[in-house]
């Protein structure tokens, strides 16, 4: 009997260890914690204090169990390299959002991938400034090899000197498998710093990221006019179409998230309904080219007509 009890205890200890590794709460573990907290009510609070970054959007925060984890990997994936604008935009807006809520001078680190840089360009400091990140807030790293990039990400996270690390990779490289991702995840957990894994044109892959978003481009919001109305045809705040692919919550979540660079704040896009059918535009869209944003109306074109509108 005593032997049985010891075995049980060992098993329990192992389970506990696994649960702790995976960041889950076992029922037994939770019970034990409750017992702890009964004895020491303040200790529980400290233990429960897993750093999270709430979005302030109920739908999102519920799905993310309180917000974006700040001590682990969050993967941001796109289907195509052409969506690089949307994916890097979402990753940088997360970094900017985080930076706005952490009043310290530490920068974020952008670890670029050589080919992605050629394909989609380098983050542009003037554009970033308008996006909510000043030029001293961003360090750029351009390692030549993936191994160097992984080392860099690991060192950066472990140094605790950076608010967030964005690691850009392309596709699903063989050298960045579950082992490497697990290693990075453990580092991030130990250091309590977030790592955003930006995967361009990648497949779904097992990794130690606690959440994985699929980002697709979506039509931008209209510009606001001072009287509260919208300026039709203008290109305003960026909107991302997010799909939460991996989370502990089994219900899939898909929403349109708007980033306000000026307030550094996320919000749900207003015209969420119609935008999903955007890929099939109506046959006769009418006036497709609106007036310029900064004047009242365009004067009628003066020059010779070079080409007619499409017939069909």
């Amino acid at each position: 009997m005593a032997e049985h009890a010891t075995a049980q205890e060992t098993l329990f200890a192992l389970r506990e260890q696994i649960a702790r590794l995976e960041g889950k709460s076992l029922p037994a573990l939770a019970a034990a914690e409750q017992a702890d907290s009964a004895a020491d009510p303040e200790g529980r609070k400290a233990k429960d204090n897993q750093p999270r970054l709430p979005f302030g959007i109920t739908q999102m925060d519920t799905a993310l169990e309180g917000g974006l984890p700040l001590d682990g990997i969050t993967e941001i994936r796109s289907l195509l390299m052409g969506d690089a604008g949307a994916t890097s935009g979402f990753a940088l807006s997360l970094a900017s959002y985080l930076k706005a809520r952490q009043p310290n001078e530490a920068p974020i680190l952008w670890i670029g991938d050589v080919v992605s840089t050629q394909e989609a360009g380098i983050p542009y400091s003037v554009g970033l400034k308008q996006f909510g990140l000043s030029s001293r807030d961003v360090l750029y790293a351009s390692p030549r090899k993936l191994d160097d990039a992984l080392w860099l990400a690991e060192t950066a996270v472990a140094s605790q000197a950076l608010v967030a690390v964005i690691l850009e990779i392309r596709g699903n490289p063989k050298h960045f498998g579950l082992t490497e991702s697990r290693r990075l995840g453990l580092r991030a957990k130990a250091a309590g710093r977030p790592l955003f894994l930006l995967r361009h044109a990648g497949e779904e892959e097992a990794s130690s990221a606690s959440f994985r978003f699929l980002v697709e481009p979506a039509p931008a919001a209209h510009r606001h006019l001072p009287d509260g109305s919208m300026l039709g045809g203008s290109i305003g705040h960026p909107v991302f179409k997010l799909t939460l692919e991996k989370s502990r919550n089994p219900a899939p979540l898909s929403l349109l998230l708007e980033w306000n660079p000026h307030d550094r704040q996320f919000s749900l896009s207003r015209d969420a309904g119609e935008a999903f059918s955007f890929r099939n535009p109506p046959a006769h869209p009418g006036a497709r080219l609106p007036a310029s944003a900064d004047r009242q109306d365009r004067a009628p074109a003066l020059g010779a007509v070079m080409a007619f509108e499409r017939a069909s």
Partner: peptide, 20 residues
């Protein structure tokens, strides 16, 4: 942060880590 910059520059070269 300074330590991090130094370590990266020592290992991967000063040009690897840049600021705009």
């Amino acid at each position: 942060l300074a330590d991090f910059i130094d370590r990266v520059s020592a290992r991967l070269g000063a040009d690897c880590l840049q600021i705009a």
